[in-house]
Amino acid sequence: MSSPPIRQLALQGAAAILVLSLAWPYYGLHGEAMPWRETSLAIGGAALLFATLSRQPWWWRVIHAGFMPLVWYTQSLAIDPGWFLLAAILLLLVYRGALTGQVPLYLSNKQTVQALAELLAERGASRFLDLGAGLGSTTVPLADALPDSHFTGVENAPLTWLVGRLLSVGRPNIRWRWDDLWQENLSDYDVVYAFLSPAPMPRLWEKVRAEMKPGSLFISNSFPVPGVVPAQVIEVACTPPRPLYCYPL
């Protein structure tokens, strides 16, 4: 099965092929120049239709509808290509997880950190793992609040890892790692926390069940494990709602 990014590119490609296969012969026979603005809008409409028929999430439908019109508009601005290369590099450095694992950069808020701190305090000294730790917005304040516990953050986007590494300096109870979350051995931890996306949750749950020890706890921010009823749901007082789904092993 092709990867999700490849499937999305294939959908855009199908929309472009459909529209261009109709537009090119028509305007060619009439000896007219291709109206690229209208053509880009037609491709966007076809991509939206395909995304809807294939039951894509709403945000993918918006992306597909706007992608080609934005390409046309950006091309009309005659921006130096070097800026696009720089933007692509920066996006890769920050949002690598979104490209490779459908995991965008989410930052835990202060209310969530407080709820986690209270939960960890009830358990006593723990070994805590943050999968996809981002900038350290969870790991760093928890390490300050609970000096008797040990915290590990795993992040695979270079720039966000670097920021988190700098923020964790001077905190001996933090281990900050640049690595793939799928390579981390979960058996080394009492509590594993994830704020990812719906896409990796089934696979992550399989890993949790295979590796985490009895008595340990898996916590997912915002995204429940499909088909599994959590033992506890902590409703964090924040906007938008960010419930914590707790799954004891």
Rank of each mutant, 00 (worst) to 15 (best):
Y26I: 10
Y27E: 03
Y27T: 05
G28D: 12
L29E: 09
E32Y: 07
E32D: 07
E32G: 04
A33H: 04
R37L: 13
R37K: 07
E38I: 01
T39G: 07
T39F: 07
S40Q: 01
L41M: 13
I43A: 06
G45T: 08
G45Q: 05
L48H: 07
F50M: 12
F50S: 10
F50D: 05
T52Y: 11
T52V: 08
T52R: 06
L53V: 12
R55G: 00
R55M: 11
Q56M: 12
Q56Y: 10
P57G: 05
W58D: 05
W59K: 09
W59V: 03
W59C: 01
W60H: 07
W60A: 07
R61P: 00
I63D: 01
I63H: 06
H64L: 09
A65Q: 06
G66Y: 10
F67G: 01
F67L: 15
M68G: 02
M68A: 10
V71F: 09
T74E: 09
Q75V: 09
Q75D: 13
S76L: 07
S76F: 06
A78E: 13
A78W: 12
I79M: 11
I79P: 02
D80A: 15
D80Y: 12
P81F: 11
P81H: 12
W83L: 13
W83F: 15
L86R: 13
A87L: 15
A87C: 08
A87P: 05
I89V: 14
L91R: 00
L91A: 14
L91N: 13
L92P: 00
Y95L: 14
G97A: 09
G97L: 07
A98E: 06
A98V: 02
A98K: 09
L99S: 06
L99T: 01
V103Y: 01
V103W: 08
V103F: 09
L105D: 00
L105Y: 11
Y106H: 14
Y106F: 15
L107I: 10
K110T: 10
Q111Y: 08
Q111M: 11
T112C: 11
T112S: 15
V113N: 05
L116E: 11
A117I: 03
A117E: 14
E118W: 09
L120P: 06
A121L: 09
A121F: 01
R123S: 11
R123Y: 03
A125R: 08
S126K: 05
R127L: 00
D130Q: 00
D130L: 10
D130A: 05
L131D: 02
G134E: 09
G134C: 04
L135M: 12
L135F: 14
L135G: 04
S137T: 13
P141A: 06
P141Y: 08
P141F: 11
L142Y: 01
D144E: 11
A145D: 06
L146H: 01
D148F: 03
D148T: 13
S149A: 10
H150T: 11
F151Y: 08
T152E: 07
T152N: 04
G153Y: 09
V154N: 03
V154R: 02
E155N: 03
E155R: 09
N156Y: 15
N156K: 08
N156W: 14
A157F: 05
A157R: 11
P158V: 10
L159F: 14
T160D: 02
L162T: 04
R165T: 01
R165M: 10
R165W: 15
L166V: 12
L167A: 13
S168Y: 04
S168A: 15
S168V: 02
S168P: 04
